[in-house]
Simulated assay, not measured.
Amino acid sequence: MTYNKRIFGAAIIKAINSNYNADFSGQPRTLPDGTVYATDKAFKYAVKNYLKNVYSTESVLYFKRFNDEFVPFSLDDAYANMFPEHKDTKDKKIVAKDILSCLDIRLFGATFAKKGKSNNIAISVHGPVQINHGVNIWKENNIFSEQIMSPFRNPDEKSEEKQATTLGRQSKLQEGHYLHHFSVNPQNLQEVVRLAGEGAKNISDSDISKLQEGMSCGVTWYDSASKAGSENEVLIWIVLTESSKLVLPNLTQLVKMEEEKRDGKVVLDCSELSKKLAAFNSQIESIEIARNEASILIENAPENAIVKNL
């Protein structure tokens, strides 16, 4: 069934001695004032990875894959691999229908450019799900680095240390709580659905359920040497009524993390969020707050909110 309601929310990712989203030098990303942040791509990657692995029957196109020689696919390669019967098509409707059959594109959108022998096909899909950069809302931004040793020597014969194993360095954030604001607007997808024509997949109730699930546990699910210690901590999920025209501000303005822990847990104060939502009760269908009860306390949650454990 086609999903037609808008959603606003926030996801908080906890990082303890972890590097949730490194820059190209391997350091946690920082704003000019030193505040640690993460791109929207880091969160999307974790969600896509979860959906690809848990829902193996769903097609996920925008995800790194390799050919038999372990070379990453180009976009054309990925499309041809997923839709071999249409790899040479020049029909924009067929391409639009194909890419809408992919769950990640129905959710996050894409800029798709397919090279043809005589003409190129370009389709811009404005995704219903829009995610902001995640900013650390904890009081500290303590980054530390440590040396690590490789089990292999430097093969450079000119190196003075050619007989010794090489040293590397890794950097991590001591503690952080990244808050990503997000919104879901199914209307964003409708222009491409109309272009694709009859039989094209639209965003559905099932897609939204999978999205909510992926946003709840995708980071915890994805584990690597640098991201060990990064976990989903909170998901705030606000569903508006179908007729609502309400536009909520960025939730980073409406929730605040207290500077002192209580019983070893951080405390998220939702007072401003509760005040804001109370003024629009008639336009809000439901409010859910899922949290990791082992690491965070929720204070002053909205009156009608369903608070549950991740």
Rank of each mutant, 00 (worst) to 15 (best):
G168M: 04
T241V: 02
S159L: 03
D205P: 11
A278H: 11
V135L: 10
S18R: 06
W237N: 02
S74I: 04
M257Q: 09
E285I: 02
M257E: 08
N250F: 15
S206G: 14
K227I: 14
G26H: 07
V239G: 14
L100G: 03
V247D: 07
Q212A: 15
V129E: 06
K172N: 05
N292G: 05
S159I: 00
H177R: 12
K172W: 01
G214S: 04
S282D: 12
L297M: 08
D98Y: 02
K275F: 12
L103E: 09
N17T: 11
Q212D: 14
P128Q: 12
A113Q: 12
K90V: 13
F83A: 07
E242L: 00
L189Y: 00
K14A: 12
V192Y: 11
E146Y: 11
I238Q: 02
K41N: 12
F280Y: 14
T165H: 08
R106L: 07
I99Y: 02
I238E: 02
Q283I: 00
S271E: 09
N132A: 14
I12L: 01
S224K: 08
K115V: 15
L310E: 09
A228W: 15
R153W: 11
D207G: 01
K115S: 14
G214W: 07
F70S: 10
E175I: 15
D104P: 13
P302W: 00
S226I: 13
V255A: 01
S243A: 07
V129L: 11
E299K: 11
L248V: 05
N136F: 04
L310P: 07
V239Y: 06
A110H: 03
L107M: 12
K158R: 13
G116M: 06
K158Y: 14
R65H: 11
Q283P: 02
F108H: 00
Y3G: 06
A80G: 07
G109C: 01
K97F: 08
I121W: 05
I16P: 09
E285V: 00
E293D: 14
R29I: 04
K256P: 10
S295R: 10
N304M: 10
S150G: 13
R106M: 03
S171E: 04
K44W: 08
K87G: 10
E146F: 12
I284R: 03
F66A: 05
D91Q: 08
C102R: 06
K139G: 10
L61T: 01
E260Y: 11
D98R: 04
L179R: 05
S159G: 02
A228E: 15
P28E: 02
V125G: 04
G9H: 04
D263P: 00
F63A: 12
E161R: 06
I284M: 04
E293L: 13
Y178E: 02
K275S: 14
V129K: 03
K41A: 14
K48Y: 09
F24D: 13
C102P: 10
H86A: 10
E85H: 09
I143E: 01
C102H: 08
